[in-house]
Design a protein around this nucleic acid. Structure first.
Lengths: 344, 344
DNA sequence: TTGTAAGCGTTATCAA
DNA sequence: TTGATAACGCTTACAA
C-alpha cells in the first residue's frame, strides 16, 4: 500500500521519482522516444505507473492553447433524437482524445446563452449546436474567436457555418407523396412553432409545396402547437377533426414529441388509429414500434448525423479550411400499421 | 466593427486596454471592489465589455487547483431514466457555476474505464457515477486523490461512498404486494443480469422476499435476460408463458428497457395485455401512458435524484466532511390499465 | 489603492 | 541524450 501525501501528482513528482528532469518526462509523454535513452524511458515508465500519474489537461491546455473539450448544446436532452446524436458524437469524440461537454438548453435561449458563456470560458476547441435560434450574436462572437462551430439540424441565417442534418425537403415530400398515394383526402401537418427553427420551417414549406404540386386540397391543413400546453394541442386537433369529419384523413407530425401528445389526446377522445385517423411522424422513437402495433415513421440516421458532425468539427479543429458546408442526410420511411391504403 | 487580430483576449490585454495592471483586473474579476477605486473599476468594466473578455477557466483552475468541472458517467444515455437525472443534475450544476462533463459508458466497463482516465486528466472537482460495477480500482484511485464521488442508483461493495437512489426494497415490495392483492397467481420478475448491479440485485431480492413473506408460489419466477439478444428474451418469456398457462399472471420488469422488449415480443405473439398477461414495470417512460391505454409503472423521482446527487457533491466539494451517506427515495406506484383486479 | 513578481503543471526553446 | 529556463493566463503575497 502506497502512502500518499499530496493528492495530485505532477510531472515534477514523476521526474524526481525517476531521477530525471521534467523535460524528459514531458518527452516521454509526448511519445518522443527517439529523444530518450532506453534507460531513462524505463525509469520514467516505472515512476508513472507507480505514482499513477496522469498529465493535467488544464496545464497542457494552457500551454498549447487547446482544451481538448468540445461543447455541444442540445435543445432537448429528453428527445430520443438528441440522445442518439449524442452517442454518435461522443463515440468519435473520445476516440480522438477529446471530451464532450454536453449542455441542454431546454429550447430556452436564456439557458443557451449561459452555456455559451461557460463554454467560451472553458476555451472549448469546437462547438456543435442544436440552436434555439435566439443567440446569433454569441455564435458570431465564437466565430470571431476562431472557434469552429457546426450547426446541428437547425440552420441560422446570415452566418456562414457548417451544418449537418436531414434533407427535410426530400424527407417531407417523400412522406407526403406516400400519403397522397395511399389516397388520404385530408393530410394535416402538426408542428411546434416554426418561426425561429429552420427544420420546422423547411418541413412545413415542403409539406405545402408538395401538396400544391399534387393539386391536393390539404396545403392549408397546417397547425402550430405549443406542446407544453395540452389545451392548445387539443383545440388544434379538435379543429382538424371537425373540419375533416367523414374524410379519409391522416396527421403528419414534425417530431416525436408532438406525436406523443397527439396520441395521448386521441386516446382520451377514444378515437382509434388508424380507423378514425391515420398517423405518421418524423423521428423514430423506440416506442413507435409498439404503439398501434407500429407507427409509420420518417426515420433520420441520427447516430450517423452525430458522427458526421463530430468528424466535421474535428477536421476544422485540425485546421481544415474550406467554405462552410452543408451535409443533408436522406430520411428513411418506415411503413407500418398506422397509414393503411384507402380504397377509393 | 472592431478589427480583431489575436482571437483570444487575455487578462493582460484587458489591463493594457484599461491602462491598469493585471492585478487590478483580477481583483475586479474576483469581485473585490473594495480594493479598487471607482475610476479604475469603471475603466476595467469598459475594457472587458469592449473586448468581450472572458477569463479562462483553465488558467484559473491551474492556479486554484479547481477545474469547475463535474464528471458524470451514466450507464445508458438512451434510457429516459438517465436523461431525467441529467436534467436535474445539470440545472443545479450550472446554477453553481460548474460545468458537467457527461460520459456514457453504454454499460461497458471498458468504456467506463476510458472515461475515468479522461476525467482524472481533466482534474474534475467531483464525479457522479452510475457505475457498470467493473472498475472499483478506479473509484478507489479517485478517492485517494480526494475527488468527491457520488454513486447514482448503484452501490459498490467495500467502498465508503455517498449514494443517491431509490429505496428498492420499499418500491419492489409495494408493487409486489399490490399484485398479490390484485389476485395474480403467477408473478414473474424480468431483469437484466443482476450480478454486478446492486439495483437489480436488490429488486430481485425484495421480489423474492416479499412473495415468500406472503406465502405466494412465485418467488421462483425470476428471469434474467440479455436485452441485446431478443432471442434470449423470447425464450425466457416463452418459458414463463408455458409454465403459467391458464393462470392469472403478470410480469414485473426491472426497468423500461426490458419492458419495451417484452411488449415487442408479446405483440409478435399476438398476445393481448392485460387479457392474456398483465404488465407492470419500473421507471415511468413517457410512452408508458400511451401503450395499452396506460401501463402500470413504478415511478422514481428521477429529476429529484439528479438534483440531490449534484447538491450532495457540491457540498463535498465545498469541504463538507461527514461519513458516507445514502439517500434512498420512495417510489410512486402509478396504477393504470395493465394490472386489472382478478376475480377469484 | 495600485502594482511587481512568483507560481500553478505543462511544453518548447535552447544550450550543454 | 539531457536539462535549465521561459512561457501559457491567471491569482495572490508582498511591497509601494
Amino acid at each position: 500500500m502506497v502512502k500518499r501525501e499530496n493528492s495530485k501528482v505532477t510531472i515534477y513528482d514523476v521526474a524526481r521519482e525517476a531521477g530525471v528532469s521534467k523535460t524528459s518526462v514531458s518527452r516521454y509523454l509526448g511519445g518522443r522516444y527517439d529523444e530518450l535513452s532506453d534507460k531513462t524511458r524505463k525509469k520514467i515508465e516505472l515512476a508513472i505507473n507507480k505514482m499513477e500519474y496522469r498529465p493535467s489537461t488544464m496545464a497542457r491546455g494552457l500551454k498549447s492553447n487547446k482544451s481538448y473539450l468540445i461543447g455541444i448544446i442540445v435543445a432537448d436532452i429528453n428527445n430520443p433524437y438528441t440522445t442518439a446524436i449524442l452517442r454518435g458524437a461522443e463515440d468519435i469524440c473520445s476516440q480522438n482524445g477529446y471530451n464532450l461537454m454536453i449542455c441542454n438548453s431546454d429550447n430556452n435561449p436564456v439557458k443557451e446563452r449561459g452555456y455559451f458563456e461557460m463554454l467560451l470560458s472553458h476555451r472549448i476547441d469546437g462547438l456543435i449546436i442544436h440552436t434555439t435560434g435566439g443567440n446569433h450574436d454569441m455564435l458570431k462572437q465564437m466565430q470571431d474567436q476562431k472557434t469552429p462551430i457546426i450547426l446541428l439540424d437547425r440552420k441560422v441565417p446570415d452566418l456562414e457555418i457548417d451544418t449537418v442534418g436531414l434533407d427535410n425537403f426530400q424527407a417531407t415530400s417523400q412522406a407526403v407523396n406516400y400519403l397522397v398515394n395511399q389516397n388520404y383526402e385530408r393530410i394535416a401537418f402538426f408542428s411546434e412553432p416554426a418561426s425561429k427553427v429552420s427544420t420546422r420551417y423547411e418541413r412545413r414549406l415542403s409539406f405545402q409545396q408538395t401538396l400544391l404540386g399534387q393539386g391536393h386540397p390539404s396545403s392549408k391543413d397546417v397547425y402550430e402547437v405549443n406542446v407544453d400546453d395540452l389545451n392548445d394541442v387539443d383545440s388544434k386537433l379538435q379543429h382538424f377533426l371537425d373540419d375533416s369529419e367523414g374524410k379519409a384523413r391522416v396527421i403528419l407530425t414534425a417530431n416525436s414529441v408532438v406525436l406523443l401528445k397527439l396520441i395521448l389526446l386521441l386516446q382520451e377522445k377514444k378515437l382509434s388509429v388508424p380507423k378514425d385517423l391515420a398517423m405518421i411522424g418524423f423521428d423514430n422513437p423506440e416506442w413507435s414500434t409498439i404503439v398501434y402495433s407500429g407507427i409509420t415513421t420518417i426515420e433520420q440516421p441520427t447516430y450517423q448525423i452525430g458522427v458526421a458532425a463530430m468528424e466535421m468539427i474535428l477536421r476544422r479543429i485540425d485546421g481544415h479550411e474550406s467554405p462552410a458546408q452543408t451535409m443533408a442526410y436522406q430520411a428513411k420511411l418506415n411503413i407500418r400499421q398506422t397509414t393503411p391504403y384507402i380504397q377509393k
